[in-house]
Lab assay of single mutants.
Amino acid sequence: MTVLPKDIPGDSLKVTVGTANGKPGDTVTVPVTFADVAKMKNVGTCNFYLGYDASLLEVVSVDAGPIVKNAAVNFSSSASNGTISFLFLDNTITDELITADGVFANIKFKLKSVTAKTTTPVTFKDGGAFGDGTMSKIASVTKTNGSVTIDP
Rank of each mutant, 00 (worst) to 15 (best):
Gly44Arg: 01
Lys6Asp: 13
Ile138Gly: 03
Asn21Gln: 12
Thr19Ile: 09
Val15Lys: 06
Asn145Tyr: 07
Gly51Phe: 08
Leu13Gln: 09
Ser80Leu: 14
Gly131Trp: 03
Asp7Trp: 12
Thr27Trp: 14
Ile107Glu: 01
Gly128Met: 00
Gly44Thr: 01
Leu97Ala: 15
Ala71Asp: 12
Lys143Ile: 01
Thr120Cys: 03
Tyr52Lys: 03
Asp53Ile: 14
Ala35Phe: 13
Ile84Asp: 02
Pro9Ser: 09
Tyr52Pro: 03
Asn81Pro: 15
Asp151Ile: 15
Asn74His: 00
Phe104Lys: 03
Val103Phe: 06
Gly133Tyr: 04
Ser61Gln: 14
Gly128Phe: 02
Thr92Trp: 03
Val73Ile: 14
Thr16Leu: 11
Phe86Tyr: 04
Asn47Lys: 03
Leu50Lys: 05
Thr27Ile: 11
Val3His: 11
Lys125Glu: 04
Ser55Cys: 12
Ala72Lys: 13
Ser55Val: 14
Thr29Asp: 14
Ala116Glu: 07
Pro31Ser: 11
Pro24Lys: 12
Thr123Trp: 12
Thr33His: 10
Thr27Arg: 09
Asp36Lys: 13
Lys39Ser: 11
Val141Asp: 03
Asp63Met: 13
Ile67Gly: 08
Phe48Lys: 04
Thr19Ala: 13
Thr45Ala: 06
Ser61Arg: 10
Ser136Arg: 08
Leu89Lys: 01
Leu57Ser: 10
Asn21Thr: 13
Pro121Cys: 04
Lys23Thr: 12
Pro121Arg: 12
Leu97Ser: 04
Thr134Gly: 02
Lys69Glu: 10
Lys108Ser: 06
Thr92Lys: 05
Gly82Asp: 15
Pro9Cys: 13
Ala100Ile: 06
Thr149Met: 15
Ala54Pro: 10
Gly128Gln: 02
Val141Pro: 02
Pro5Ile: 07
Ala139Gln: 05
Lys125Val: 01
Lys41Ala: 10
Ser85Glu: 01
Asp7Tyr: 11
Ala105Leu: 04
Thr92Asp: 00
Pro24His: 13
Lys14Ala: 13
Val17Asn: 01
Ala64Pro: 10
Phe88Lys: 00
Gly25Pro: 06
Lys110Thr: 03
Val15Met: 07
Phe75Ser: 04
Phe130Arg: 02
Leu89Arg: 02
Asp132Gln: 04
Met40Val: 08
Tyr49Gly: 00
Thr92Arg: 02
Ile98Met: 08
Thr118Trp: 05
Gly133Ala: 03
Pro31Gln: 11
Ile138Gln: 03
Val28Gln: 08
Gly10Ile: 12
